[in-house]
């Protein structure tokens, strides 16, 4: 579509709304009703009658799920992770992007990908535990243990739950169960095998974080597990390791994993400022 034609359509749209010669969609929105005029879809969608083909929304989608074809944009429902970025951006001049009416199991896309949505689908709030953030109070990772975080789909690619199942199954087979306060725990149908409900496997999320707590002695087994998983998954995963500091404040990461292991020069440190307060109040 040429720039001129887009401008023409944009102008028509604006003039149409202003003059009362409105499309059905704008009539509905002017009446103060948020319902689109087209039948509600079971996923986020673009109303083709309202879209003016400006293409402004296309580059915003972190999953590359929006495509502009012949002057109209559409969302590929299979690739969309229901993160809500396109809608929240309010970039669409025609108000053509609609949230749709999601039903199970699609709701888990939104629960895992939209940070403003509570995890009702899994019964657990947030994307994971408080992790190291409150370890000075919870002592979730005492000395001698490792918190292992595997974040599937991060960065940039997104993940299907079939890959999440691969990770949970592998760790479960080696005797390491997923922590119970992780949202994925609500999707497991066989805890002994670490399998997920079959209906969620094809669902997609921008990222899914799973967490295991292992004894320090499991480090070499962990190397093997991660190597095997790296070869099996269809996406990427970021690996994080939580470690209680030594009494002098140092980290044992190098002692445990060896100097050659790749690791980023940045990370997070809990400063322990709440430690004695929580202990006193307990």
């Amino acid at each position: 579509m040429t720039k001129d034609r887009i401008e023409m359509k944009r102008r028509d749209f604006l003039l149409g709304s202003a003059a009362g010669v409105v499309t059905a969609a704008s009539a509905v929105s002017q009446a103060g009703c948020s319902k689109p005029f087209v039948p509600e879809e079971p996923h986020r969608y673009i109303d083709p009658a309202a879209c003016i083909g400006c293409g402004d929304c296309v580059s915003l989608c972190p999953m590359g799920a929006i495509h502009l074809v012949e002057e109209t944009s559409s969302i590929d429902p299979d690739e969309c992770a229901e993160c809500g970025v396109c809608s929240r951006s309010r970039i669409c001049p025609a108000d053509a992007i609609h949230p749709g009416k999601l039903a199970w199991p699609r709701t888990i896309r939104e629960a895992f990908s939209n940070p403003l949505v509570v995890h009702e689908a899994t019964g657990v709030r947030g994307r994971g535990s408080e992790g190291i953030k409150t370890n000075d109070v919870t002592d979730r990772y005492p000395r001698g243990s490792l918190g292992v975080f595997i974040e599937l789909g991060r960065p940039a690619l997104g993940t299907r739950f079939v890959d999440v199942e691969r990770v949970v199954k592998k760790f479960t087979a080696h005797g390491h169960t997923l922590v119970s306060d992780n949202p994925v725990a609500g999707l497991i149908n066989d805890p002994a095998r670490g399998t997920l409900m079959p209906e969620v496997l094809k669902e997609k999320a921008i990222s899914v974080l799973v967490e295991f707590i292992l004894p320090e002695s499991a480090v070499s087994a962990l190397h093997t597990l991660l190597d095997e998983l790296a070869a099996e998954v269809e996406t990427v995963f970021s690996v994080g390791i939580a470690l209680r500091a030594e009494p002098d404040g140092a980290s044992r990461i190098e002692d445990l994993f060896g100097g050659e292991v790749f690791r980023l020069p940045n990370g997070k440190v809990n400063l322990g400022l709440a430690q004695d307060i929580a202990a006193k109040g307990a």
């Binding site: 190291i132 990427v236 690996v239 994080g240 470690l243 209680r244 404040g249 990370g267 997070k268």
Partner: peptide, 21 residues
Amino acid sequence: GIRPHTYLHSLGVRGRVDRLP
């Protein structure tokens, strides 16, 4: 004079890194 309590280290990205930007 603050002593670190707990660390979170990143061991980077694994899997299909060929698909990354």
